[in-house]
Simulated scan of single mutants.
Amino acid sequence: MKIRELGIEGAFEFTPQQHGDQRGTFLELFRADLFEATVGHPLTLAQSNISTSQRGVLRGIHFADVPPGQAKYVTVTRGAGIDVIVDIRVGSPTFGRWEAVRLDDVDRRAVYISEGLGHAFCALTDDATLTYLCSTGYNPTGEHTVNPLDPDLAIEWPTETPILSARDAAAPSLATAKADGLLPDYEACRAYIRSLG
């Protein structure tokens, strides 16, 4: 497993080694020991989700209240997409920065998004199937969204005509979400994550 820390604290890329022969392919998608050694705490699995999207569908930017937040370990099991992690933690030295990672059924890489970070995904194929392991279950009263087309974020999406849900299209900008007190606090996120170790 090749592991790379991204330019946002709490975001990592995991690329598995694939073993193939005439029967097909085998790989380790997730290794608890490597994960814990990298991140500093185990991933508690509370929920596993799958979404399917047609080309051009844009989901996010989603995040949850911290604590407890919702960390995610995300991969694409069919098709391809661009996964985007956004630092929305007020007070973070990389506040407002984003990182994009291509997830597909060729390289089989995954990304880890810690509590307090924003997450979005844009499908590059009509059969993009996103699978993600979540540290907490869905909590509708603690879930929020920032508009993925916010010009201040200037995320370089791979489509000129993204397909968004009504909720994501109506989401506030990062600046509005900050002014409204919706965004997680950087130091509170760090303290919560330290408590997991």
Rank of each mutant, 00 (worst) to 15 (best):
V39S: 02
R59Y: 07
A32N: 02
L58G: 10
L164M: 09
E99N: 08
E99C: 11
F14V: 00
R4W: 00
A80D: 04
K178M: 12
N49F: 14
S135V: 06
T75M: 15
T77V: 15
A154Q: 08
L124Y: 00
L34D: 14
L124I: 04
R102K: 15
A110L: 07
L29A: 15
H62A: 09
E28N: 08
G197S: 10
D87E: 07
T25I: 15
G79F: 05
A37V: 06
D180E: 15
Q17P: 05
T176D: 10
D21Y: 04
M1L: 03
L29N: 11
W98V: 15
A32R: 13
T75P: 05
I155H: 09
C134Y: 01
Q22L: 07
E28C: 11
T125L: 03
G91Q: 00
G181S: 08
L34S: 12
E160I: 13
L164S: 11
A169T: 06
D127S: 13
E5A: 11
D126A: 03
H119M: 02
G81F: 06
V66G: 13
R167Q: 14
F30H: 02
R59M: 10
N49E: 10
R97N: 13
F35C: 02
F35H: 05
T125M: 07
I3W: 02
L133V: 03
G137F: 02
R89F: 01
I61W: 06
A110F: 01
P16V: 01
R4C: 07
Q18D: 11
V111R: 08
T131N: 13
A170W: 09
T131W: 08
D150Y: 07
N49S: 14
A171P: 15
K72I: 06
F63P: 01
S48Q: 03
S165I: 03
Y112A: 01
P148G: 07
T52E: 11
Q18Y: 12
S165M: 01
I88N: 03
E187K: 01
G56Y: 01
C189T: 03
N147H: 14
L153F: 10
V111W: 05
L58A: 09
T129F: 02
E99F: 10
V111E: 06
E160Y: 00
R109E: 00
D105H: 05
E156P: 09
A188P: 04
N139R: 14
